[in-house]
């Protein structure tokens, strides 16, 4: 019993760690998207993670990124003695699983499949979209507070840091936006501008509206895709039965996907 509780706690730690792995297209944690299905911790502290994407045809390059993201995050837990990652029912699943469990570096495995090319161009494209989406949340929140365009586009990181956002999407996105500002080197110190473009340009006060119009399109695309992916993930293994009451959807592998952190409550 005592051992069960320990195992459940360890599984919970793994689930929490997996929240740091995002779907690059959607900029959302794979756990929120329902992609991770099973986390198992063995008595020798080896971890197995199974995940499944919404369709058999989801982008293989992103499947690679997510699989290696899972390996990296789980392996970073100090007690973990080994990680096995399994992508199920995917058109490139065998290659992804072989690669991620081989112990080799991502760049090395990935290069095997495209004549040595890397994923730089694609990850840069989706980093830019993630940045735009996070920035839009912050810009809209500041507009909502009644700040004039001039004050928003000239705001420094120091001022931005001092503004407290309570609740909602802006509170969630503030540290995520800041993290990308830092990792991209767009702002380092308190006097640096808080709202440059991804290319490092400043936004003129007159251009804020057009800038926001563009960001809006990016956000709508991401939200739409997120809704589609969640829906497809939920209906992928369902079939219709026509009964006396009309059609109903039956999950033929019901209960297969545990809710996040289920391990803890099971203890």
């Amino acid at each position: 019993m005592f051992l069960d509780i320990i195992m459940a706690d360890l599984e919970t730690e793994v689930w929490e760690r997996l929240e740091l792995v995002t779907d690059p297209e959607l900029d959302e944690p794979i756990t929120d998207m329902g992609f991770v299905e099973t986390v198992k911790v063995s008595s020798s502290n080896k971890v197995e993670v199974e995940f499944r994407l919404p369709t058999y045809w989801c982008s293989p390059n992103f499947a690679f990124l997510m699989a290696f993201g899972i390996r990296r995050e789980v392996a970073s837990l100090p007690w973990v003695r080994g990680v096995t990652v399994s992508l199920r029912d995917h058109c490139f699943g065998d290659e992804v699983n072989e690669g991620v469990n081989s112990g080799r570096a991502f760049s090395e495995v990935f290069a095997l499949y495209c004549d040595g090319a890397d994923l730089g161009e694609v990850t840069a494209k989706f980093d830019a979209k993630a940045f735009d989406r996070r920035q839009e949340v912050m810009l809209l929140a500041l507009q909502e507070r009644g700040l004039p365009a001039e004050d928003i586009v000239t705001m420094t990181l120091g001022t931005f840091d001092r503004i407290a956002f309570a609740g909602g999407e802006e509170e969630r996105q503030k540290p995520r936006y800041r993290a990308l500002l830092m990792s991209r080197g767009l702002a380092q110190g308190p006097d640096d501008p808080a709202f440059p473009t991804w290319e490092g340009q400043s936004i003129g006060p007159m251009d804020l509206k057009a800038h926001l119009a563009r960001l809006r399109g990016i956000r709508i695309n991401m939200e739409f895709n997120g809704a589609l992916c969640k829906g497809l993930a939920s209906s992928r293994y369902k079939e219709v039965e026509i009964g006396p009451e009309g059609p109903t959807l039956v999950d033929f592998i019901a209960g297969r996907v545990p809710t996040k952190g289920r391990g803890a409550s099971a203890g």
Binding site: S59, Y113, C114, V122
Partner: peptide, 10 residues
């Protein structure tokens, strides 16, 4: 979704 080239957005 195009699978190859794998280094491009599918």
């Amino acid at each position: 979704p195009t699978i190859i080239p794998l280094n491009k957005d599918a």
